[in-house]
């Protein structure tokens, strides 16, 4: 694992004091979401729906790690997807740095996600035909960052996560832990304010998972991190743990 901190990877242009103070980066208020309720035009009106979230309220301040726990189907992933703007809740508001995601168009939500949210998936979801460096630089392509700057930024981030010697490797040539570190570097490439991680150690052995958790903890010192997991070791790095059950907030500790 790298001894170099990923905190230093934040760009100087955004290194401003107002972004460093412990403001609320993510706020969910009265969020309810029903799957099947926003079906296509050919679906019948009496289609059965599944309620994934019921009146969920949650704050994630900048500089903190919030863990989400709960059994399968409790709504952890749905909360992460709502924060990332991958879905719009049926009711309630999801604010990302003061912007209500539900009020945005699809294109605006995509832009907001690109600029302010980094996503780490359980199964990494790296593009198999791109090198580690190209995977990390991927979000910067759509941001219009010139090629040389993209390569520099991706190389810096890979060095920061301890993969400076793996920049040209394809994902298939990397171990599970290395792939997850590449995924974390990719999530950091646009210098986002919020990181959402869905079971980030779910596919890793204990030792490798511990490395990834250290990395996430390091990342969380300057950003808001929301981690969903079943794993006690993963939740142990969180400053606060929110327990979900049947789509409701059951406990906060």
């Amino acid at each position: 694992m790298s001894k170099q901190s990923v905190r230093g990877s934040r760009s100087s242009a955004r290194d401003r004091a107002d972004e460093r103070e412990s403001a609320t980066a993510v706020r969910l208020e009265g969020v309810t979401h029903e799957y099947g309720s926003t079906g296509g035009r050919f679906r019948s009106g009496d289609e059965r729906t599944v309620t994934a979230l019921r009146d969920v309220a949650l704050d994630v301040p900048t500089g903190s790690i919030v863990g989400l726990e709960g059994p399968s189907g409790s709504g952890k992933s749905t909360v992460l997807h709502a924060v990332a703007g991958l879905l719009v809740p049926t009711a309630g508001s999801v604010e990302l740095r003061g912007t209500d995601i539900a009020a945005l168009s699809d294109a605006e939500r995509t832009r907001l996600r690109r600029r302010h949210v980094g996503i780490v998936f359980q199964r990494f979801h790296l593009l198999p035909s791109l090198s580690a460096r190209a995977n990390v630089a991927l979000p910067l392509v759509q941001s219009g960052v010139p090629r040389a700057a993209r390569r520099d930024r991706a190389t810096t981030l890979l060095e920061a996560v301890g993969l400076g010697d793996r920049t040209t490797h394809l994902p298939s040539e990397l171990s599970g832990g290395e792939r997850q570190r590449v995924a974390i570097a990719r999530a950091l490439s646009t210098d986002p304010d919020v990181i959402v991680a869905d079971e980030p150690t779910g596919e890793l052995d204990t030792a490798t998972g511990q490395d990834v958790l250290e990395l996430l903890t390091d990342v969380g010192r300057e950003r808001a991190v929301l981690v969903a997991s079943h794993d006690e070791a993963t939740l142990a790095v969180a400053d606060r743990v929110v327990t979900l059950c049947d789509g409701r907030v059951d406990d906060v500790r």
Binding site: R97, G98, Q142, G144
Partner: peptide, 29 residues
């Protein structure tokens, strides 16, 4: 969005061209 004004001022057209060059280069590679 709240922080849009905080982004460094850039010329939209060169950025758009860079973006499309990047998308095509990414696809080629």
């Amino acid at each position: 969005m709240s922080d849009e004004a905080a982004d460094p001022p850039v010329d939209a057209e060169p950025r758009r061209r860079t973006r499309w060059r990047g998308v095509i280069g990414l696809t080629l590679s």
